[in-house]
């Protein structure tokens, strides 16, 4: 058998290379590959200028958003795309409106830029985000998501239902 091993090895390497090609094709979108690994608590994010409410920074409690933002965005994505539901609370545009910050020259920096809100955490977690190949990365028009004094707004009338397609949910970060 040993005489077959070189051939097998060559074959296995080539096959795995081929299978990896699509991944490699998008690999250059990842940022921060050369960074030292940091504990998560030491990551710094640009702070948004606004708060969602007096008691709450983001549209959901921060811990919840950290863990599940992709589910909210994904759910909203399908509802907007297929059913024309255009509530603002979980709209990606509103994410960008809040989380994109201006540089010293007073111009907005793309929210997926290195060290910006999305990229800093995503490169830490080695999760590629696909949103911004198509979606705008800077605020263009004023937010219509008004900061509220309470977390209950007209936009929360449609809560996330428990029937999110698990398949969709599991694909969240990649989309």
């Amino acid at each position: 058998m040993s005489q077959f091993l070189p051939a097998l090895r060559v074959f296995a390497v080539l096959l795995s290379l081929l299978l990896l090609l699509p991944q490699a094709a998008t690999a250059d979108d990842d940022d921060g590959g050369d960074k030292e690994t940091l504990p998560f608590s030491e990551l710094s994010f640009p702070e948004p200028e606004r708060r969602f409410s007096a008691t709450q920074k983001c549209v959901r409690p921060v811990a919840e958003m950290r863990r599940n933002h992709m589910t909210y965005i994904l759910h909203q994505r399908d509802e907007t795309m297929h059913e024309g539901i255009r509530t603002r609370q979980y709209s990606l545009e509103e994410c960008v409106n809040c989380h994109a910050v201006k540089n010293d020259e007073g111009e907005y920096v793309p929210v997926n830029g290195p060290d910006q809100f999305c990229a800093s955490c995503h490169s830490y977690a080695s999760v590629n985000i696909d949103c911004f190949q198509c979606h705008a990365t800077k605020p263009v028009r004023p937010s219509t998501l008004h900061t509220q004094s309470s977390t209950e707004t007209e936009h929360t009338t449609r809560e996330l239902s428990g029937t999110i397609n698990p398949l969709l949910a599991s694909e969240g970060p990649a989309q």
């Binding site: 060559v10 290379l17 081929l18 090609l21 998008t26």
Partner: peptide
């Protein structure tokens, strides 16, 4: 033969990476 085919595949892989990028 094996090397030649592998070389062609590698070149094709490079071409594909370029197209996709």
């Amino acid at each position: 033969l094996l090397g030649g085919l592998a070389l062609i595949i590698a070149l094709a892989g490079g071409a594909t990476l370029f197209m996709e990028h």
